[in-house]
Design a protein around this nucleic acid. Structure first.
Lengths: 346, 346
DNA sequence: AAAAGTTACGCAAGCGCTTGCATAAAATGA
DNA sequence: TCATTTTATGCAAGCGCTTGCGTAACTTTT
């Protein structure tokens, strides 16, 4: 080997510029398609950059332009640990769009103090904005984020009196339709297996349940709505309790396919048949591997693909960050009501 | 309001320093516990910083210290979309440790070109290291990452002749034990429902399967090992094919509880009983909601909690980055073999 | 009491990039 | 041909932080 040496490939702007015999400004501008740079120069620079495998140092660029080109997803760590969650599907949707739009996705789980995480993200300027999930009925995070000046989008709504962007499932109409369907089929003893009461979506669903009764000049007993966690097991336990109690319900409306599964199991455990002795309806998020179609009999459900929500969340946030949107964006996902074998007239 | 104004809380080092009447150096050092700063000053600075909600700008700090204090997780986007995957559990483990160690976790999914993502991560210096998953038998990523000089840890092993750190399940011994158990119970017509052949773990398991036979002076037909994807459905289809073929197997050894579930279903579909007519064993990753215990009859399995692997992956990578470890770290997770009702003597 | 050593802190040079402004060269107009 | 505009490029000042080195002001030593 006669003294020949590989040129260490240019890893920073300065050396790349030196190697090309132009200034850093020119290289930087050429690489970003600045109009003042003629096409010929642009190409020369670009191909040198490609050859060297040059990519601007993300941290330096960030610092210079004052943006991180990254968003954060803030969530309770347990949402990754729970066996039954639609969270991963939301994450998949978010990932897709973030990647497409050339942003980075920072995962920010927290154990208990979400506030601290949000504050840290804001003050350390690690991200340009955040997605938060599962708003409470009266959620303090909205006020915090507004005061921090950190752009954000919420997965779900809340009643807080302040402008904010969100993407939400149409809980109100979806549950009204599901309940209405059962009522119109002649069911009267209906139990709603709902989510935990402090979540806004559960409150909305409970209201919708009663609204469906009211719209038909009927009224449901308050105890007809069960506020329990979103799992198969609680679906099972809740349904079992009602099926074995006096005044057996003839139908159940469930918050998710997870719960519906449990309800199916409870019905079977009582020696009854779904869609024959007892009707079941639910909302279906289209979670990976847990869809209404996979139950036997197939479950009548309202359907909103939750991955789509994830995509929308990311797109909305990035638009917000890039100033492509200034007024708060509020999206309520449309749903389809699909009739399948799990309901029958009372 | 008589001209009184809120002092805008110090958001950067400079203003914080000015406000305290000291230099930036002092503030920076005080906040990082530099020994030359006396305790009294340290406290004064710290409390001013707390009051102002000051946190160093992560990007500026990164640039100055030449570290991102972040790691990347590079994976095919589909692993978030597939219904049956142990990926989320690995992610949960990684998240935990990353958070504990005060790092950030960058999620870097890719559609098809993983190489491009790795190159980009390396050249843009967005992270200090990466975790890659599911190595192929002869994996090109190892060479690439070594040449890029980007620290990394692999979830799984590969036969590539180069030093690298990894955390892996003990596929070899686990499968040898499972197969051996069946053999010792007198089974001879055993089918292995294995993963896809290009993954290293599947190759290792196939070899282990044959090794168990050989160790007893027996030999298995090559067709006894099925290289199929890791899902319930393929488990079902594969088992069904064998159960309906000539020379019905008396036992199955499966790659995961997902596959085992399918095998259970196929056995039932043939009017046979698991643990009576046909024995089933598998490896259990302890995936959220899909564990060996939940099957009926409970599944005899080797158990290695996969979340632990995630934790170890992150810890190993961070140690590597921080130079707390220089030689490649190789961890093979120990496993337990737990006997349950799914096996019986032939 | 002078020399030497400590202690507490500030200066200023980066880290690698972007970008407003200045400038030289080329093209255009009168 | 000279003034004016346009085009192509460079200079240098940041972005907010860390850190090596330097230096007063004190302590300690002899």
């Amino acid at each position: 080997m006669s003294g020949k040496r590989l040129r260490k490939s240019a890893t920073d702007l300065k050396s790349l510029a030196a190697q090309l015999g132009v200034s850093q400004s020119t290289v930087s501008r050429a690489l970003h398609g600045h109009p003042a740079i003629p096409e010929t120069t642009r190409r020369r620079v670009q191909s040198a950059a490609d050859a060297a495998g040059y990519r601007p140092n993300a941290r330096a660029r960030s610092l210079a332009i004052g943006k991180a080109e990254a968003i954060g997803l803030v969530f309770p760590l347990e949402r990754l640990q729970l066996p039954e969650t639609n969270f991963v599907d939301v994450l998949a949707g978010i990932s897709t769009v973030v990647t497409e739009r050339n942003y980075s996705l920072l995962l920010s789980p927290f154990m208990d103090d979400e506030t601290a995480v949000l504050r840290k993200l804001a003050s350390s300027k690690a991200v340009d904005g955040v997605i938060i999930t599962r708003p409470l009925v009266d959620d303090p995070r909205i006020a915090l984020l507004n005061s921090l000046g950190l752009p954000y989008v919420v997965h779900g709504r809340t009643e807080v009196d302040a402008p904010f962007s969100y993407v939400d499932t149409d809980n109100d109409n979806s549950f009204e339709r599901l309940t209405g369907l059962l009522l119109d089929y002649g069911h009267r003893r209906i139990v709603a297996v709902n989510g935990l009461a402090h979540f806004r979506y559960a409150a909305a669903r409970a209201a919708a349940f009663h609204r469906a009764f009211a719209a038909r000049g009927l009224s449901a007993r308050a105890e007809a709505v069960e506020f329990v966690s979103m799992t198969e097991q609680t679906g099972y336990e809740t349904a079992l309790r009602h099926l074995r109690g006096a005044n057996r319900p003839t139908a159940f409306v469930c918050g998710s396919v997870f719960q519906a599964r449990g309800v199916y199991r409870a019905i079977a455990a009582c020696g009854l048949a779904v869609g024959k002795d007892v009707s079941v309806v639910a909302h279906d998020d289209g979670v990976r591997g847990v869809t209404a179609l996979e139950l036997m009999p197939p479950l009548t459900a309202t359907y909103t693909p939750i991955r789509k929500s994830g995509e929308l969340l990311a797109a909305t946030l990035i638009d917000l960050i890039e100033g492509k949107r200034n007024s708060p964006s509020r999206t309520i996902m449309p749903f389809d009501l699909i009739l399948r074998g799990s309901v029958q007239v009372a």
